[in-house]
């Protein structure tokens, strides 16, 4: 009898403690959600507003906070696509891809080769060379701009797309090399040894054994380089001077400069949305690679 009441007492106390903790957990959760939601709205609203505003009339853009247009109007897109120049956005997109695609391909190939050399072989001066590789990641690129411009001028290659991707033939962006090195280090060397016994040489070990395993890293490099080259502005600004060769970023700048007088704001906004579409599509189709890529490469340094 006595035993039983004691037991009940304990049970009751535990129950009280449990409920208190459960209540605090719920409050904690609610606070987290509240902060996250308000933050997410602030973060995303400008982009949502941009998309909405691209359908609005010019007067409505500056008179309403709401992103929903009163009337959906596609004329800004039609006008934006035609642009004010003799070329349509199709030309500017084509120009963009003329250097973005080579850039991505060269980056992947050269970074994989360099990463393979550093992660699987021993060679003279490996340590200092690796240290140099890492330190180029921290080198402010701005200090190289002027001599590189003069270099391409001497070769008569200004106003071509070559200066925008040539350095990537030589794995110039150490960030990507490092990303793949980190990934390769995680693959057991026994795999290579076994392949060697089976008669693979060093190159076939790379193509047949390692490449299939490092595919996620390659996808990460591809999409990061794609995004960053789509965003590159200073490069084309310096090197491309003929309108027919303008990429999207410079075309947009030109439209912005031209519009400052005649208030066709919705056209500019529609053009901005068009300029963002490839990046948004790539982001959503390859989301998980972004997060994985940035956390492995950034962290393990």
């Amino acid at each position: 009898m006595n035993n039983e009441t004691a037991f009940n007492n304990i049970n009751l106390r535990m129950d009280k403690g449990y409920r208190k903790r459960e209540f605090r957990r719920k409050v904690n959760l609610a606070i987290r959600y509240a902060i996250l939601t308000i933050g997410a709205i602030i973060m995303l609203y400008p982009i949502v507003w941009l998309v909405g505003a691209s359908f609005k009339t010019n007067s409505e853009i500056f008179s309403s906070i709401s992103f929903i247009p009163k009337k959906i109007d596609f004329t800004p897109y039609v006008k934006g696509w035609i642009t004010g120049t003799q070329y349509t956005f199709a030309t500017y997109y084509l120009n963009t891809f003329k250097y973005v695609i080579p850039k991505v391909i060269f980056t992947v190939v050269s970074s994989v080769l360099t990463a393979y050399g550093f992660s699987r072989f021993d060679f003279p001066f490996k340590k200092p060379l690796f240290a140099i590789l890492i330190s180029t990641m921290f080198l402010p690129q701005i200090v190289l701009r002027i001599p590189l411009y003069l270099f391409w001028k001497q070769l008569h290659l200004l106003d071509t797309f070559i200066p925008l991707y040539a350095n990537d033939i030589f794995a110039a962006e150490a960030f990507f090399v490092f990303m793949i090195i980190q990934f390769m280090r995680g693959i057991p060397k026994e795999l290579d040894e076994a392949a060697k016994i089976d008669g693979c040489n060093s190159f076939t070990i790379l193509t047949r054994i390692l490449l299939p395993v490092i595919t996620p890293a390659i996808v990460s490099v591809t999409i990061f380089q794609f995004m960053w080259s789509m965003n590159d502005f200073m490069g084309p600004l310096i090197y491309i001077s003929t309108v027919s060769k303008y990429p999207v970023s410079i075309a947009l700048k030109m439209a912005m400069d031209a519009t400052s007088g005649n208030f066709e704001w919705n056209k500019i906004i529609a053009m901005s949305v068009i300029a963002l579409i490839p990046s948004i599509v790539v982001f959503f189709s390859a989301q998980k690679y972004f997060v994985e890529g940035i956390s492995t490469s950034g962290l393990k340094g």
């Binding site: 050269s110 080198l139 110039a172």
Partner: peptide
């Protein structure tokens, strides 16, 4: 062999980093 694989990077380092620097 290892040096061979990093050779492109090494050439690029000289042309596109050390020289302009």
């Amino acid at each position: 062999i290892g040096l061979l694989y990093i050779l492109p990077w090494l050439i690029g380092l000289v042309i596109f980093t050390i020289y302009p620097f």
